[in-house]
Nucleic acid binder design. Structure first.
Lengths: 347, 347
DNA sequence: TTGTATGCGTTATCAT
DNA sequence: ATGATAACGCATACAA
């Protein structure tokens, strides 16, 4: 176990018999500035000494930090990351893989209520950030001031400064509802987290309404169960719905997590799925296919979406902000038909 | 949107009419070195200017980087993080919350096969690292050379340099198996990922064998289904088991993920759980209570374990390596009795 | 093409 | 108690 002392650019330059500038040039691909011979001497020396650059120094000297901030929402009690929600873990997987592949590292964190992200981005000299979730206005204003490329996921903030990687949530809501309608259902409940202005949930809700309207069905606000994106709430809503609205034969849950809760709540209330009540979820998180019965849901390739976000960010960083298209990347959506929807027989 | 220029320690010092050294002292709590008046002048100036320290510079100047490396295993194809495994996402939640609370940030990443972590720790001047999963010998050797505190999770590497936060896996395996035996089962299969020397799985396997032996039951290696920690394998193993060993009435799966697969595989083979076959898992990941029927399993408080790991690491960093107890932290284990185990009626 | 010198923001040493 | 000033490791403008 050699104690391992830090090898600096100076060590390399001395060993190679050249200047530190030459080393820096070679190691940063500015090959044009240097002769073939010098280049190879430098490379040899660097590899013999096992040179590892210090990113803090690089960052300080004004170049890239190769650090990306990734922010995900926190649990309601503000105590921990919402990483337990598979949707976010999948996104993070996609992001991390792509970033590392390009030589970047990711600082993953949540942001406490009322706190901003400006401190972190300044402290760490972040090259860019990927933000998931929805925050207050001032949060985004801060972000803009750091002049660093930013990609938003799951947010409909309407500001051309930010890039977004989204899905057509409205279409997804429509697809799910339409599937139920096509199977003969007319009394379709919506179970969902808070419908916030400009949130993904609102779009899905709009899709739900559009499908209803298109089919000539009456939109009944009593059929909307709106509270939080959690298993517990799904369960609760299902109980309420089973007790108070026996005429409901189908549920569209705007998130798989909620849908799983609905499954349980229904089962607790003595309703069978899909015989008595059909259920459609949204996201296609891994458990959707592992639960019992396997959940019919709207699939988005979450990992791919994460990778997409990373790609867009890296492009903006490396090729300049303007190089990027200003239309949002929109990932494709499809139905994952499994076993929680049943055709309603006319009685 | 003010363009936002960087406020340095020098700006603060000028505004306060003191030296940069004084500013540094005050802002780092070395109050003793400075008069009350200077201190308050500095604080005022800093807050008026909205001073945000640059961690790169700090790190370069030789103090702490306040950066912790967190490594988690990757999927089998080496492409993405194993964050889809709720076990790891929970751990990360616990770790991140604690770190941020103490002013640290976390770089989350995987490590490619054959790669080490030495580069990253040097590049980023990490103050410490938390490593999950099992790696080759040389990986740990590298780690030791950076002379930075390290906490291992889920590894039985026997080296006093590393701290560990573990659970009594052997006892867990024993508890699970004993539960089945106490319910009258005698033909108990084990479905598990690869049993690697010194891995957690080996310990659980040992606990399984101990419970068997203690009950005077014969250990039958045909009852051990060993391959990978995945839903798919659980499903596969259950199919094989149902087809080839009708005498088996109970399964201990060394991970909930695998157990969920077993549930499905059993159901596909026409076996009912728990009427025909009882199943016990391990970990108590969130889906365990959400699946159908809810899974009886060995519970470890995963989030708390993550927090524990972070605590130990921070203590080692801030109070010096020697301040830490050299006995590993061992988190408590208990059975989460739900609905997948049934008493076997003597026939 | 190559090398020297300077600055990046912070901490720490050493005079004062 | 306080304030210059020299590192820290790297990139780069400028000089040679």
């Amino acid at each position: 176990m050699t104690p391992l002392k830090r090898i600096t650019i100076r060590d390399v330059s001395e060993r190679a018999g050249v200047s530190t500038a030459a080393v820096s040039y070679v190691l940063n691909g500015r090959e044009g500035k240097v002769s073939q011979e010098t280049a190879s001497k430098v490379r040899r020396a660097a590899s013999e000494l096992n040179y590892i650059p210090d990113f803090s120094a690089r960052s300080l000297a004004g170049t890239r930090s190769k650090l990306i901030g990734v922010v995900i929402p926190q649990t309601e009690d503000q105590k921990q990351l919402l990483l337990q929600n598979p949707f976010y873990s999948e996104l993070v997987c996609g992001i991390e893989a792509r970033l590392r592949q390009s030589g970047y590292h990711m600082i993953l964190s949540g942001v406490d209520k009322g706190e901003g992200y400006l401190d972190t981005s300044m402290q760490r000299n972040l090259d860019g950030a990927i933000i998931m979730g929805i925050y207050q206005e001032s949060f985004y204003d801060d972000l803009k001031r750091v002049k660093v490329p930013i990609v938003l996921i799951d947010s409909y903030v309407n500001d051309s400064y930010f890039q977004t990687v989204s899905i057509d949530d409205e279409a997804g809501g429509y697809m799910a509802t339409k599937l139920l309608i096509d199977n003969g259902h007319t009394n379709i409940a919506l179970v969902t987290g808070l419908i916030r202005k400009d949130g993904v949930v609102e779009k899905r809700f709009l899709g739900y309404k559009r499908a209803l309207k298109e089919a000539g069905l009456f939109y009944n606000s009593d059929y909307v169960f709106e509270h939080s994106v959690s298993y517990e709430y799904g369960q609760e809503a299902a109980a309420a719905l089973a007790a108070g609205h026996p005429e409901i034969t189908a549920v569209f849950a705007t998130s798989d997590l909620v849908a799983l809760g609905v499954l349980r709540g229904l089962s607790d209330a003595g309703k069978r799925v899909p015989e008595d009540v059909s259920v459609v979820g949204f996201d296609d998180i891994p458990v959707a296919r592992m639960c019992n019965p396997p959940l019919t849901t709207v699939r988005q390739n979450i990992v791919a979406r994460g990778a997409m976000a990373a790609d867009r960010l890296l492009k903006a960083i490396e090729e300049g902000e303007d190089s990027v298209a200003d239309d949002p990347s929109v990932a494709r959506l499809e139905l994952a038909i499994r076993q929680t929807v049943q055709r309603l027989m006319p009685n």
